[in-house]
Amino acid sequence: MIQVEGLTKDYGKRRAIDNLSFHAEQGDILGFLGPNGAGKTTTMRILTGYMPPTAGRAEIAGFDVVEQSLEVRRRVGYLPETVPLYPEMSVFEYLKFMGELRNLRDIEDRVDEVLEVVHMEERSDSYIGSLSKGMRQRVGLAQALLHKPEVLILDEPTIGLDPTQIIDVRNLIRELGKERTVLLSTHILSEAQQVCNRVLIINKGRIVVEDTPERLQSRLAGSQRVVLKVRGEPDGLETVLGKVPGISRVNLRPDNTLEFELTPGQDVRPDVARAVINSGFDLLELHAIDVSLEDIFVELTREEPQPPSVSDDGEEEAAFDTDEIAEDEVEE
């Protein structure tokens, strides 16, 4: 359905996306993950025919996005990042206008249908300018669904929605993804984890990794991370831990806790506890942290890949881990 080969886009001297290649079939919900400025929106704009690429080619449903742009645009439903709405129109008028632009038949019935899908049927006569952000987002989504497109391209579809609406929209996307191809971008990683059947992590215009969310997680989660806390200064604890087999990457964190990774398949926490106590430390805490997609994301999109050495890594990671530390403290 979506076929992208060697896609490159330059804005002046800046290269926004660099030689992207990926594909998605019918029934795929492809998640596009990446930090801001990674090139997600640029890629989506090329796929929807908004602008042509500098190099490379992209096809949607067998039509080239540059050469057969109109055919592509007929088959794609697009929700841009800034939801394109006319505040002076009512929801109904707006959707009717879009339906007319798309030469639909029985527009009014179809508008009622999509309004029901996004739970906006009661606000159909409200002016868009008077709607809340979440409602506008849903009107934008309705607009993208109006012509029953084969391919849905959604740029941050759940942004600005409240938690219940987010669940609704995610369920809706999952539902839609059964018969269509959905490409959605997000920087909420749990969203990609929940909704998508394939995740594409992109950073600085390049694809860093492409896999299913489960496999991605197991790829790094193979090594489980453990946090250890003792009373007082943990001087010499690193050497103690270094002697326990099945432990790697010991880090001293700024709050005087130690973090290390367990070799997959070997839970040596009891051994660690014994070693710590035998060396005369008072063990306060020993707990495992799940490696989430967040960690993988941070790991993969970091500025420069760090060698996995103990000393260098400690400082680098400190900045990213502050949140985690805060959470841990709350748990106590």
Partner: peptide, 14 residues
């Protein structure tokens, strides 16, 4: 300015 150009340029309109 409002971003609706993106809507018009990705609709099947020349």
């Amino acid at each position: 300015r409002s971003g609706t150009m993106e809507l018009l340029l990705t609709a099947p309109v020349r």
